[in-house]
Design a protein around this nucleic acid. Structure first.
Length: 475
RNA sequence: GGCGCGGUAGCCAAGUGGUAAGGCCGGGGACUGCAAAUCCUCUACACGUCGGUUCGAUUCCGACCCGCGCCUCCA
């Protein structure tokens, strides 16, 4: 399998350093509110990576953290009158529910920052010992970027550009720069206790305080994956400064390559623009569920563009995803019929991946193994499905194809036949009109039936006749 | 300003040094009182512009135009 690596800017082969497990770490969510679909794009891509590593027999050990201590979680827990623990576990549960809804596999480990304070303090201690950190007048401890010459390799910054971080893109003073750092590039390892932090502080050799954000990922990835591991991932925004800082603080301590491969997901756009609350184009998973979109439709839409391509998320895209999924279901339904299988069999049968990957969908597998190209994989899948639709198949042939499809669906994390009919809240008035129309129709009074259908439409509902009744659908 | 990405048919989206997957939409047919749904089936003068390299470029190089992202403890 091969994947684009941010550090070398090239597609690189993936192989575990120890030959036994492929160790990967994904920067997880900060839990102070519902994750949005942009967050889920990244987590879904990582979920697919983990699945493909698994079926490709690379034996992944997948760690994704929970960030539960930083400015937002602290401030909002205090505002809510809850302990940090109570507040963040509430949002962590919410996140897990969303992950399950989207059919994401649970990471092998999901460490929380607050449960690894000691590891983080130890790291700060080592950095102090080695002269890579200093305590400022405000009591906070900073990483001395000058002490680590390779700094900036991942995002290709040089010293001159680092200094330019003093000002923002608009030329205004960088407001993030309100700490007692000796250089603006230096970043906090340990933040001294402040009144606005409430009870959220820990004791350390440098006084009371809390760890800086960047530190947790270094401490936890080292703990669960070792000083040097195979792959580190996250959204593109984390490339700088977060990952750059992680590399610096970790490698300054270990002297080893922190992660061998850097994997970043490009952000998604909504209607061609960046998601933002003010623009009203900010969606959470539950916003979409409430609109009646089924989870698998949302999953399909969110993985429908290559991970290194901006994904333009639109309602149109959801419709397309829905139709595409239905098209898959249609083909599979025929195969189930020929093979005399039930729908449940798709998920219950044991799958011999190595063999199935060499089957008739090898084009799709090749696409997934070459830089995780999901759109090409689904494209190849539909091409193959078209041939299958037109072939006369024996029971055995259909059965084999079903297994091959089940394997591919597993890698993509897609489940078929899961869409629930929308639970429509039909107003009584509309129900009444619909009943009248049904009666008129049965009496073959077409004129009356059509007039009633128009009236129902005027109320915002569509009547659709089925074999032995009708359905109402919101317009 | 620094770093980076993209411009492929109405929309979305892969890909290739020898004229280009797939999905959506749309068209036609069956069915239906008519619709919808369903089933069958079909199409497209699509590779931002201008140069260069090449026997040949959409694919490589350069310039330009347009759009977008990151550079803010936002994935």
């Amino acid at each position: 399998m091969r994947l684009f690596d941010t550090m070398t800017r090239a597609v690189q082969p993936l192989q575990s350093a120890d030959g036994r497990k492929y160790r990967l770490y994904c920067c997880g969510p900060t839990v102070y509110g519902p994750a949005h679909i942009g967050n889920f794009r990244t987590f879904l891509v990582n979920d697919i990576l983990r699945r493909v590593l698994e079926v490709a027999d690379l034996n992944p050990l997948y760690v994704r953290n929970i960030t539960d201590v930083e400015d937002n979680t602290i401030r909002q827990s205090l505002e809510a009158g809850l302990s940090l623990e109570a507040f963040t576990s509430q949002w962590t549960n919410y996140f897990h529910e969303d992950c399950n809804t989207l059919n994401m596999l649970t990471p092998h480990e999901e460490p929380k920052a607050t449960q690894h304070i000691e590891e983080q303090i130890n790291l700060v201690g080592k950095l102090m010992e080695k002269g890579h950190a200093y305590q400022a007048a405000d009591g906070s401890v900073y990483f001395k970027v000058d002490s680590y010459p390779p700094y900036g390799r991942l995002s290709r910054l040089d010293q001159r550009e680092l200094r330019s971080q003093v000002s923002t893109s608009g030329g205004a003073p960088n407001l993030a720069d309100n700490y007692d750092r000796s250089s603006v590039a230096d970043f906090a390892l340990w933040k001294s206790r402040k009144p606005e932090d409430g009870d959220n502080w820990w004791e350390s050799s440098w006084g009371q305080g809390r760890p800086g954000w960047h530190l947790e990922c270094s401490a936890m990835s080292m703990k669960y994956l070792g000083d040097s591991f195979d792959l580190h991932s996250g959204g593109e925004d984390l490339c700088f400064p977060h990952h750059e800082n992680e590399i610096a603080q970790t490698e300054a301590v270990t002297g080893k390559t922190f992660a061998h491969h850097w994997f970043h997901t490009i952000h998604l756009l909504v209607d061609g623009k960046k998601m933002s609350k003010s623009a009203g184009n900010y969606f959470t998973l539950r916003d979409l569920l409430e609109e009646g979109w089924s989870p698998m439709v949302i999953r399909y839409a969110l993985i429908s563009a290559h991970y290194r391509q901006q994904l333009n998320f639109t309602k149109n895209g959801l419709h397309a995803a829905q139709s595409a999924l239905q098209k898959m279901e249609k083909s599979v339904l025929r195969l189930l019929d020929i093979a005399e299988r039930r729908k449940q069999d798709l998920e219950e049968l044991p799958l011999d991946f190595p063999a199935l990957m060499k089957g008739s969908f090898s084009g799709s597998w090749k696409a997934l193994e070459e830089d995780l190209n999901v759109p090409e994989a689904t494209g190849a899948m539909f091409s193959r499905l078209k041939e299958i639709d037109r072939s006369d198949l024996s029971m055995e042939q259909a059965d084999t194809i079903l297994l091959e499809i089940a394997a591919l669906l597993y890698a993509l994390g897609l489940k078929l036949f899961t869409a629930q009919p929308k639970p429509a809240d039909v107003p009584e008035e509309v129900k009444l009109l619909a009943e009248q129309r049904w009666k008129a129709k049965n009496e073959k009074d077409w004129a009356a039936a059509d007039t009633l259908r128009d009236r129902i439409k005027a109320e915002g509902w569509a009547v659709k006749d089925t074999r032995d009744g009708y359905e109402l659908e919101a317009l």
